[in-house]
């Protein structure tokens, strides 16, 4: 879901510790990373990937569809706006993004008809094809169960269990743990219902807010595929 082998991806904040480390991990998984962006670090190279000063330059030269953000919280709004104005979908890994910034980013994305994953999310993976974000590569196994989660590390825990039990995954999506995230369960479930690779869905909720309740109502009404949910309390 969202991405496949061919999806062209750029990394904003690629020269940072996390940005460069996870660029390497994503490349190892097979993600088609075409460029990186760090203001002031243009013309350098990270893991063989060319770095640009602006998203605009990267877009002009590489024509990407997604950007994944490893940018400090205080700069996320600016970086996200830059990517959205360049018509990219964005995946925000950064934690501690002010909620007013998140609302502004999501509002702009809606106007531009672009997808926002996160903030504070571990990213998403189409198992066996492509991964954006920070989930550990080796825990996944290709199969037919989609995993949707508000949590980060608990997602790895559950995916790891599924794989050990021989239950493979189609897509795993961390929607992010913040109060307001760009894409939530209600946005993704209708797509999974139609996704041919997905035969069942695992949903991992968290305490706080009423998203899980609304999602349960929605599943009852609209989702025919089997759904298993877990909320730690």
């Amino acid at each position: 879901m969202f991405i496949d082998k061919k999806t062209r991806i750029i990394v904003q904040g690629i020269t940072g510790t996390q940005g460069s480390f996870h660029t390497k991990q994503m490349l190892e998984y097979g993600t088609n990373i075409v460029a990186g962006v760090t203001p002031g670090k243009g013309k350098s190279v990270v893991e063989g990937i060319p770095v640009y000063n602006t998203v605009k330059e990267a877009v002009k030269n590489h024509n990407p569809e997604w950007s994944v953000l490893f940018v400090p919280a205080a700069h996320v709004k600016e970086a996200a706006f830059e990517a959205l104005h360049a018509n990219l979908n964005i995946c925000i890994i950064s934690e501690h993004v002010p909620v007013h910034d998140a609302i502004a980013i999501i509002h702009l994305a809606q106007q531009k008809k672009k997808i926002v994953l996160g903030p504070n999310c571990p990213g998403c993976i189409t198992v066996g094809e492509s991964k954006i974000g920070i989930m550990p590569n080796h825990i996944f196994k290709k199969g037919n169960v989609a995993v949707l989660s508000r949590s980060g590390t608990l997602t790895y825990e559950i995916v790891h269990h599924l794989s050990n039990e021989g239950i493979g995954q189609s897509s795993v999506i961390g929607i992010g743990g913040d109060p307001v995230v760009g894409t939530n369960f209600l946005d993704i479930l209708p797509i999974l219902e139609k996704d041919e690779r997905t035969k069942a869905i695992v949903l991992i909720g968290e305490i706080g807010g009423n998203l899980e309740e609304k999602t349960a109502e929605y599943i009852k009404k609209c989702i025919k595929k089997p759904v298993v949910a877990y909320i730690a309390y």
Partner: peptide, 13 residues
């Protein structure tokens, strides 16, 4: 002690 609120919650469980 754990990394991630969800994982720690699940550990308590």
């Amino acid at each position: 002690i754990g990394n991630g609120a969800g994982l720690v919650m699940a550990s308590l469980d």
